[in-house]
Every structure is written in structure tokens, then in C-alpha cells.
């Protein structure tokens, strides 16, 4: 039994009478606790796949099964960390997480339990110290951490990350990748992460799903990254498995599926 199954998903958008097929026959099976990255050139429909799993978009063909049940609307069991954090600017850090916790666990946990759960999730991403600040008063990396805390606080079956560190500088990104690995090691959620960063994909993932270019993008190849956990970035630099995986992804992206329209 597969935990999360993306089965033959295809999607087309019709605009002004012209139908544009974005995805065709995307199939990926993900086990409980597995960390899977989606990588591909921009415009290949990675985010579309994620939005379909999240339920924010409806597939034209095929579908998504989570624990054998079809997914057709958004819900907290598939929490999303959005690329641009999407924190509500009029709420403090704590209130942003509280909005999710109070909604998802209303009736299941008491007020005190919910408060403790909010605090727990803030401390998980090391944001307890800034709990009462507003998003405009904290750095980009901190906002993204709060976004992760908000998503984790929903206790999702699958955590969906849409280029979570794309807008951050390299040092902050490395730091957050380490935190994410720690959290994943502890919680063992299934994770789907979209990225365009090859090192990030290899470092974090159990498997890397490489997508071909659109239109009609699909899964080109799936690479299993056979590295023991916990992984430490410094030890991996010279590791043959790591360098081999990295080379394989680079080869796929730049030799076999180089972006054709770059010149235009």
C-alpha cells in the first residue's frame, strides 16, 4: 500500500479557446516518512504538481490518493509552505501559527493544549524569541521558518514545500536546510519539496523526481539518493554517492533536458 500516490496526473488550461497541456501522465508514489524532491527547469509545472497534491488545483486527468482516499480539495492534512511565506502581515508570528492550530484542533485539544502546541512548534523552528513580532519586523529566513512552523503545527500527513528557500541567501538557506533535516528526522512526515537547487535536492531527498520541460511535462527520471541519515553537508562534499547523484541530476537538467527557449 502506497501512502501517497500521484497517478497519471495531467492538467490542461484553456484560455481564449486555446488548450494548453501543462502536465501529462505524472505518476509518483511516496511512502510514509519519505522525503521527495521535484526538480526541473522553471515553467515545467513543478508547482502545478504540488498544487494538485495540495488540492488547490484540480487535475484534468488522473488523480491523487492519500492513504487510498482521493484528494480533491485543500486541507490541513496536506499543509503547504509557500515560496513567499504567505504569513498574514496583520498577525504576529504566534497568531499566524495560532490561526492554523485553533482551526485544525478546535474541539480536539483544549485551549491550554493548543497553546502548548503553538509554543512547541515555534520552538521547533527556533522562533520562540520573536513570537510577538509581526512578519514585517523579522527577516526573510525567519518568515520562512514561521511558515514551516505553521505547516507543521497542522500535523500534516504530507508536508508540501514550494521552493521554500528560493528567496533566501545561501547561508540562511543552508541553515534552514539543516533545520528541516532535523525536523524531518524527528517527525518522519512524508515531504514533497519543489526546488531548482541541485545541491539542496541531493542533500535533503530520499528520491529526486526530475521533470522534463513543458508543455506536456512529465516525470523524466527518478533518482534514489542512497545516503545514510543524518547527513552532514561537510561530510558529503567528497562522498562519491553524493557527487554521483549530483552529477546525475546536473546531467539530466543540462545535457538531456536543457531548457530550449533560453535564447529567446
Amino acid at each position: 500500500m502506497t501512502y501517497l500516490s500521484i497517478e497519471n496526473v495531467g492538467i490542461s488550461f484553456t484560455r481564449a479557446g486555446r488548450t494548453n497541456e501543462v502536465l501529462r501522465d505524472v505518476s509518483v508514489k511516496i511512502e510514509k516518512g519519505e522525503f521527495v524532491s521535484l526538480i526541473g527547469h522553471s515553467g515545467c509545472g513543478k508547482s502545478t504538481v504540488l498544487n494538485i497534491v495540495a488540492g488547490l488545483l484540480k487535475a484534468s486527468t488522473g488523480g491523487v490518493l492519500l492513504e487510498e482516499k482521493e484528494v480533491n480539495s485543500p486541507g490541513p492534512d496536506r499543509a503547504v509552505v509557500f515560496q513567499n511565506h504567505s504569513l498574514l502581515p496583520w498577525l504576529t508570528v504566534r497568531e499566524n501559527v495560532a490561526l492554523a492550530v485553533d482551526k485544525v484542533f478546535k474541539g480536539k485539544k483544549s485551549k491550554a493544549e493548543r497553546n502548548a502546541w503553538i509554543d512547541h512548534n515555534l520552538s521547533l523552528v527556533n522562533m520562540t524569541h520573536a513570537a510577538d513580532r509581526r512578519p514585517s519586523e523579522i527577516s526573510g529566513g525567519m518568515k520562512q521558518r514561521v511558515g514551516i512552523a505553521r505547516a507543521l503545527a497542522m500535523e500534516p500527513k504530507v508536508l508540501l514545500l514550494d521552493e521554500p528557500f528560493g528567496a533566501l541567501d545561501a547561508l540562511t538557506r543552508a541553515h534552514l536546510q539543516d533545520s528541516l533535516m532535523d525536523i524531518h528526522a524527528r517527525l518522519k512526515n512524508a515531504v514533497i519539496m519543489i526546488t531548482h537547487d541541485v545541491d539542496e535536492a541531493v542533500l535533503l531527498s530520499d528520491r529526486i523526481v526530475m521533470m522534463t520541460n513543458g508543455p506536456s511535462a512529465t516525470v523524466g527520471e527518478i533518482l534514489t539518493v542512497d545516503l545514510a541519515r543524518p547527513r552532514r553537508r561537510l561530510d558529503l562534499v567528497e562522498d562519491p554517492t553524493y557527487t554521483h547523484a549530483r552529477a546525475a541530476v546536473l546531467e539530466f537538467l543540462y545535457a538531456r533536458h536543457a531548457k530550449p527557449a533560453m535564447a529567446a
Binding site: 485543500p74 486541507g75 503547504v80 509557500f82 504567505s86 482551526k103
Partner: peptide
């Protein structure tokens, strides 16, 4: 209202 906020509320099922 940014689409992001609508997405957040959809995921939370507000």
C-alpha cells in the same frame, strides 16, 4: 486580496 492568503485559508479550510 493576494491569492496566497486565499490559498492559506483554503488549506486551513476556513
Amino acid at each position: 486580496i493576494p491569492q496566497d492568503y486565499r490559498n492559506v485559508s483554503a488549506v486551513l479550510r476556513l
